[in-house]
Design a protein around this nucleic acid. Structure first.
Lengths: 337, 337
DNA sequence: AGTTAGCACTCGTCTTCTCAGAGTGCTAAT
DNA sequence: ATTAGCACTCTGAGAAGACGAGTGCTAACT
């Protein structure tokens, strides 16, 4: 593709991203002083259409980028702007000096990204069941109640309240927890259930009902509950192409279908930023959207993803820049958590 | 108001709630076999309009209930249906035998109610700052990191990870926590900050930075973060009166304005169910909606509210019945938590 | 060979107009 | 007090037409 054609495609994508209106040859030549006449632009556009980069909503209207057009733009033409200093600062500040629970980080990140980009944002949690248990504690609260605290190899911590036999003293609990912790060290969370039953012997056996309760709690931890934090869905209303209520409903419905979301993130490249455009997306509900996703890590291991969803005419450059910074800062913050 | 007039109002409200279409005299008399002619109904309807119970979208269309009409219906005419046995069972099951964190209960409740009623539902969290501290523990995780667990007088438990001086051993932490716990027993959460500084003396003084960290964490707990759980906002799309995107945006915007939500719940009667209709609502964003709210308790004390929002033509009877059961079961579950 | 002016043509959008239908309010009869 | 009858009002759907943005093609120009 020669230079001028690229330039036409680039300007057309950018104009369409900004205005949402199909772009005509006259607009393009006048607005951006291309130095050639509309007729020339028209010829270029006709070529680009034949090659599949542009589309015609109907015979007599301007052109709109096709999926292939956006793809070419993102892969070849997009210049990645650096993020504004003050914005980077803001992102760093919103994580700094905070030692918090995982869910806090997820919600915080979703809110942060959707506030900055004005697109709906999802944050996918680490699959706890993949992690290995490092340590298990029982903190007595009052007779019959304790807090179960688990530390994983990824550094994440989960805590849950748990009912315990009322007759057990704090020291009993501590002893049980210590023994259990030794026994289960390094076991994958998803295998904890069977591992517990295997290790129950002698004295421990007595509190069978407690162990069932314990297993129940562990299963719930492994169940990966609350795996998605969503924020800014309302932003979808800002885009004229989603003023159609049915289309809107389809997209909003997507946010509530965990299975679809899973399908979307599974099989992504393990690191870095990835862009999916329109029909490239596996879910039918959002075929008229685009998604930019970034992985985040705990230590060296990728554990989850941040996911920005918008209309296909998304501000790819800005979103990519924000996600690069945010995923980096989030990974850093989690390392310290 | 005589019996027949009441009957007309009742049927009109119910028909409008079900169909969403303004109700004409003919429809009413034919559909419900009132035994009088449409003309008679017309007279009754004209009277009801003069008295302010009905409204006329325009000269030649059926009538629609006014706020006053709905109010009369809810206060005088509504018969409260018992909830279906199996539904009650379902509600109970979804709380049963679960010992969980407060936020879990909130999200669970919001989801449950919005699933059953098909209206958006908010659950307002207890104001933690009102509670008094009963007990404070520090659970060592690894060098430099611990989990801070607080138990309140309401029975609620909050836990947060916290950075600690790396040189402190587990036993040091336990001792500090024990001393602190004794000293702060019964102090209101909002006063914890000043109380801590007052009590710092002697040995404890050494780890000043740690105490600042600790105070920071406690402030965050008292900050009442994540005070609202929302679910089912998408249901608003089902109602034709909200197919208008601007109106929809206004309502969805409401869910993100904590201040507005606060204004709505503050000053509610401390117990029981309350219904607010249209212009009775303090927030302009939702003047074309109605809200039904129910208080829930921990022990004897009202700590939060469940809030169902819908179009003014809401199924008041069903929503009230569901909220009665849910708030009761939620209170019971929290007592055990 | 690439570029451009000119021009007929297409097609969606906006406006206006008409018309059917639902529902009312009033009057007079029961 | 109730009801039948009827003229009247207003909305919403649909048709017709004007408008305008934008195209594609041809022929002339550099």
């Amino acid at each position: 593709m020669d230079g001028r054609k690229q330039r036409v495609l680039e300007l057309l994508v950018e104009d369409y991203v900004n205005t949402g209106e199909p772009v005509g040859s006259r607009t393009l030549s006048r607005k951006y002083q291309l130095g050639v006449s509309p007729a020339t632009i028209r010829n270029e556009m006709a070529d680009l259409e034949v090659e599949g980069y542009l589309e015609h909503p109907h015979t007599s209207s301007g052109r709109v980028p096709s999926d292939k057009g956006y793809r070419y733009y993102v892969d070849q033409l997009l210049e990645r702007p650096g993020l504004d200093r003050s914005l980077i600062q803001w992102i760093q500040d919103s994580y700094r000096a905070r030692v918090r629970e995982l869910t806090w980080f997820m919600h915080q990140t979703a809110k942060l990204v959707s506030d900055i980009t004005a697109y709906p944002t999802l944050v996918i949690a680490p699959r706890v069941s993949d992690a290995r248990l490092m340590e298990l504690s029982l903190v007595p609260m009052r007779p019959g109640l304790a807090v179960l605290v688990l530390r994983m190899d990824s550094g994440l911590i989960e805590s849950q309240t748990i009912a315990v036999p009322a007759e057990l003293l704090g020291s009993d609990l501590a002893a049980m927890a210590a023994e259990l912790s030794r026994g289960l060290h390094g076991v994958a969370v998803r295998d904890l259930e069977s591992a517990i039953w295997r290790r129950l012997k002698g004295d421990l056996m007595r509190h069978r009902q407690f162990w069932e309760e314990m297993v129940q709690r562990l299963i719930e931890v492994a169940d990966d509950e609350e795996r998605v934090a969503v924020s800014g869905t309302r932003n979808m209303l800002n885009y004229p192409e989603f003023r159609d209520v049915d289309r809107l409903a389809r997209v909003l419905g997507f946010f509530e279908k965990e299975a679809e979301i899973d399908r979307l993130v599974s099989g992504r490249s393990p690191v870095g930023i990835e862009v999916m455009i329109g029909a490239e997306l596996p879910s039918l509900d959002i075929q008229d959207c685009s998604v930019v996703t970034a992985a985040y890590r705990v230590g060296r291991k990728v554990v989850g993803r941040v996911l920005v969803l918008g209309p296909r005419r998304m501000h790819y450059g800005q979103v990519i820049a924000v996600l690069e910074t945010v995923s980096e800062e989030l990974s850093r913050a989690l390392e310290w958590a």
